[in-house]
Each structure stands twice: as structure tokens, then as C-alpha cells.
Amino acid sequence: MDITLKVWRQTGPDDKGGLVTYDVPDISPDMSFLEMLDVLNERLNDEGKEPIAFDSDCREGICGMCGLMISGEAHGPERTTTCQLHMRSFADGDTITVEPWRADPFPVIKDLVVDRSAFDRIIQAGGFITVNTGAAPDAHATPVPKANAERAFVAAECIGCGACVAACPNASGMLFMGAKVTHLAELPQGQPERMSRVVSMVAQHDAEGFGGCTNIGECTAACPKEIPQDVISTLNRDLRSALRHQS
């Protein structure tokens, strides 16, 4: 199949950048989207043009490193990561626009590569349980009701790719943060730091410049791990509890 790409090219953080059109003929529907870009990059390299920079690592949908805005949809038309999107999801002759995640807390480094370290800093603010190595009691000392363990797991599936932020009209990081807060809030081990955790994380989220949530649901629709919206509810509830207990 033949397709036309409009790819965001930007040489560095200070460059203005713009969309560049490439014809990509004769590709296989079995290629993943990133393999299609690999093929284009090989050609660009042969032509003496610098290849398109984009992030990817595991290419099996779990590391969260890849992430492109494909014709206006985070990770493209399927509900999966960009690396698991295949060209058979497109039609012969399609024109596809490829852009980086756009959010001020995710500045563009080059072409389609953005800096998502804001997410790391949100985790640093409190997305953990304080337990030094060796200080743990026996794993069976604290049973966890299956329902709580299951919900903790669902929330913990987040891969930190940033699609939620990219898809959100407000560029909000609430789904990412809600997933972590819910994961730890559902477990007995997460209770001691529950209030301070949510306050610190939300404060960091705001300091990074993410927008607020308007409960629209674009984030969940874009999330390759289908993290549900109700984790944001848990986040909100915990912050409300913190408001009561802190002042």
C-alpha cells in the first residue's frame, strides 16, 4: 500500500518546526507504524537526509516509551500503543499526520521526541511507599481483599506513556496521577502516606503546568491500558479528605 505522511520536523527545542510531507510507497499492511517509519528513515538516510527522531524501546506495548499523535489521535486509531499499531489499520492512499505529544510540560526535544520527565517528578513527589530494603514484614502478614488487589492492579497497569495528557483538551495529567494514587490507595501498605502523597503529587502536577480535569474522558479513550476514569474520582476524593485533615 502507498501512503502519504505529514510529519512534524523540528531540529531542537528552540526551532519553530513544521510539517513535512513524505510519500511512503509500497509498504506492507503487516508493518507496525514504527516499522513504517523505520523504512522511511532508511530511505532518508540513503538520500543523505537526517532521519526522523522518534522514541520507542520495547515495541511490545509495555515500556511506554513510544507515543505519537497520529491524525489527531493519541497512538492512532486503535486503542493500543503506537508500536502495536499496524498499517492494516489504514487504507491505501491515506494521508496521515504525525505530531509529537503537545503539552507545555512535555517540551519537544527533537522532531517527534518529547521530554516526559514531568511524570517522573510527579512520582518523586509521593508516588511510592516508604519502605527501605530489608524493612519489609512477611508478604502474608497483611492480607489484601481480592477486590482491592484487583483494582490496585488495574490502576497499576499505567505505562506512563503520556497519551492521556496528549489527548486531553486541557493537557491534564490527572489520569496518570489518579492511576498511581488509586494503585497505592487500594492497598493497606499505601495507607500511612495516603494523605500526604495525594497533596504532594497534585501540587507537583500543578507546578509542572498540566491543566485541570474536566471529566471529559478523552484520556481513558486514548489510554492503551484502558485505565478507567474512576481512578480520577479516587484521586479527587483523597485530595478532599486531605483538605479536611490538613487545615
Partner: peptide, 8 residues
């Protein structure tokens, strides 16, 4: 930072 000044 106090919880009061957050987006939430």
C-alpha cells in the same frame, strides 16, 4: 504547598 491551592 497546601492542598487548598491545587487544581483539584
Amino acid at each position: 504547598t497546601k492542598a487548598r491551592s491545587t487544581t483539584i
